[in-house]
């Protein structure tokens, strides 16, 4: 990472020192969590072009993995984090194994189905997951003798740094040979295959990496909340994360973060409108998309073929 960027991120991470308002810190901590999820989904949808509608499932798997490892085996947060990420990544690849045989919108439906199945299984597997009541008493992270506790500030700093690390890794990935192969698959899978790219393997890799990012986010979430319930991982969350990725600009790493910031904080800033806020939020999504159909920071990565079929549908 460049020095200036690192300095910027360090500044962002230390924001609670400047503005210690606990309400705003909490909002931005949540937005950072969304940013992590958006970065993960961006690897799958943005880099590789696989439309995934069940992404919240990997967030759930990460959260429950850490919660169970912690509650049943006493694993500390710092061991739980890689374990949760690894398990969620494995699950993403395992569920992807049958799913990548279908393409485009059908893949979206299969992933939607898996997402719902994971949520319903978590809800009904009461002896393990506590059913609809969820799991309680999950340990907060500790560094030495410092316990993160219930205050949002240390979580915010940890999350901001984790977002920075993930964003850096994602940008490096996008420019690597793997990232270029993903882009080739996204633009034209047939052509990519004919150049010797193993599309199936690379798609599974994208799913595993995206899933692992979500799993880590789930672990961070569970450790911050101390309590998790299946409600936190519904279809709406999958859709919102996708909305963040698309609003930011598909395939753009800064875009995913900006999209998460906009959609993650907007409902809070619209609180002044009281019960009208989600109504206005809906209108905002339509207006933003009409103004910038390619996403706020998108446009460079997705090149459409001139005269391709879609353009003809304008009538």
């Amino acid at each position: 990472m460049k020095l200036r960027k690192s300095a910027l991120w360090a500044l962002v991470a230390l924001l609670p020192l400047v503005d210690p308002n606990p309400y705003r810190v909490e909002i931005f901590a949540t937005a950072a969590l969304y940013a992590l999820l958006a970065l993960g989904l961006n690897v799958i949808v943005g880099f590789t072009g696989l439309l995934h509608l069940g992404f919240a499932a990997f967030f759930a798997i990460g959260a429950y993995a850490y919660a169970l490892l912690n509650l049943r085996s006493g694993w500390p947060f710092w061991l739980g984090l890689p374990a949760a990420a690894g398990l969620a990544g494995l699950a993403a690849a395992a569920l992807g194994l049958p799913a990548i045989r279908v393409r485009g919108d059908y893949l979206a439906i299969v992933t939607l189905g898996f997402g719902e199945i994971v949520r319903i299984v978590v809800t009904n597997l009461e002896p393990w997951t506590g059913g609809p009541n969820g799991l309680m008493g999950i340990a907060h992270p500790t560094i030495g003798s410092f316990n993160f506790g219930v205050d949002s500030k240390p979580y915010y700093t940890l999350l901001a740094l984790w977002v920075a690390l993930t964003a850096w890794a994602c940008s490096r990935l996008a420019r690597s040979r793997i990232g270029l192969a993903w882009a080739a698959i996204r633009e034209d899978e047939l052509a990519a295959c004919s150049l010797g790219i193993d599309a199936s393997q690379l798609k599974l890799l994208a799913l595993a990496i995206g899933g692992a990012i979500a799993g880590a986010a789930g672990c961070l979430f569970a450790s911050k909340q101390g309590t998790i319930t299946p409600d936190s991982f519904d279809f709406i969350l999958s859709v919102m994360i996708l909305a963040m990725v698309i609003l930011g600009g598909l395939g753009s790493v800064p875009g995913a973060i900006v999209g998460a910031l906009v959609l993650g904080t907007a409902p809070e800033f619209l609180r002044g409108f009281a019960s009208y806020r989600m109504l206005i939020f809906g209108v905002l999504m339509i207006v933003l998309m009409r103004l910038r159909p390619q996403g706020l920071l998108g446009g460079q990565l997705i090149r459409r073929k001139a005269g391709s079929g879609d353009a003809a549908a304008s009538g």
């Binding site: 698309i246 209108v283 339509i286 998108g298």
Partner: peptide
């Protein structure tokens, strides 16, 4: 209609926006 030539997924977002709008309008 305004987004029919835009990247295909952007319509997904406006559809979600419409969903939020309708849900909340009915709720209000």
């Amino acid at each position: 209609r305004p987004l029919r030539q835009a990247p295909k997924l952007s319509i997904l977002i406006t559809a979600i926006g419409v969903s939020f709008f309708l849900q909340n309008a009915v709720m209000l």
